[in-house]
Design a protein around this nucleic acid. Structure first.
Lengths: 137, 137
DNA sequence: CAATCTACTTGCATTTTACAAGTAGATTGG
DNA sequence: CCAATCTACTTGTAAAATGCAAGTAGATTG
């Protein structure tokens, strides 16, 4: 055989696995932008208020592609643009993101999380998940 | 006034807030160890299979303390040991961790997540949460 | 009271991140 | 049609975080 794929996993623990793929300060912000902010272009992500650097963004998009969380295709209406979107594996991150939002909203005194959205998630998690998934088809 | 507390938050978004506190490869492994593996001593965390370095562990414990997620106290039975445990804010991370586990277990072909546990979480989330919280009192 | 245990700290090499600038192909305006 | 602009990047470099090895200080054990 050529040579064994350099295996970067630290253990077979599911928490560790998730962190290996998503454990940094930027990756999940891209996922958030797609899930909750209807962003789809490179420039959209770049202009998010947290101010991701362009080299970091390019790196994270590539890693998200390599791990099967995201893909992209040419914008049919605009040849120099690419449309980024989540795969099923990426959409499956929605429940986790919702819990991150609930935790952040609860424990950050100056959170900007809309009260209505938080209430909706608490009251009807599955419904919110279904709605967001459908919107993204 | 003295001088404004150097504010490291990138935005008021709850996802960003959560990532500011927990977005790295190690912090949540300590939380995992406490929630699911009954670990409580410095040496326990050090000996986790992912192999955290001692300086990183000390740093993360301090940050978790600063952000009110964890505290510690002297072991009454052993004066050179400290018992680390989660605060309410830390226990509130449980639902998020459970979603990380579900996602990791679903998408990692070689996951070590026990099938029984995954089934229990899927079938009775709230029950599992209650049980684990009670165990940690 | 010496060896060991426990929870760290320190120093340094390597890796990752942040910031600024540059590039290449597609599109738009005159 | 062609110069300016738009879009999605790449490159270079300084700063910061991480990883690894070794050392330390107080409590405990034999």
């Amino acid at each position: 055989m050529p040579h064994p794929a350099k295996d970067c996993r630290r253990s077979d623990c599911p928490v560790s696995f998730t962190l290996d793929l998503l454990g940094d300060k930027w990756t999940l912000l891209v996922v958030r932008d797609i899930l909750f902010k209807d962003k789809k272009f490179y420039g959209d992500f770049l202009s998010s208020e947290e101010g991701i650097a362009t080299n970091i963004l390019a790196d994270r998009l590539e890693k998200l592609d390599q791990t099967g969380i995201l893909t992209w295709e040419k914008d049919p209406n605009h040849g120099s643009k690419y449309i980024y979107h989540l795969t099923e594996k990426g959409l499956d991150l929605l429940p986790m993101l919702l819990e991150m939002i609930l935790w952040g909203a609860k424990h950050d005194p100056q959170t900007a999380a809309p009260r209505k959205f938080i209430q909706a998630v608490k009251k009807n998690r599955e419904g919110v998940i279904r709605e967001i998934r459908e919107k993204l088809r």
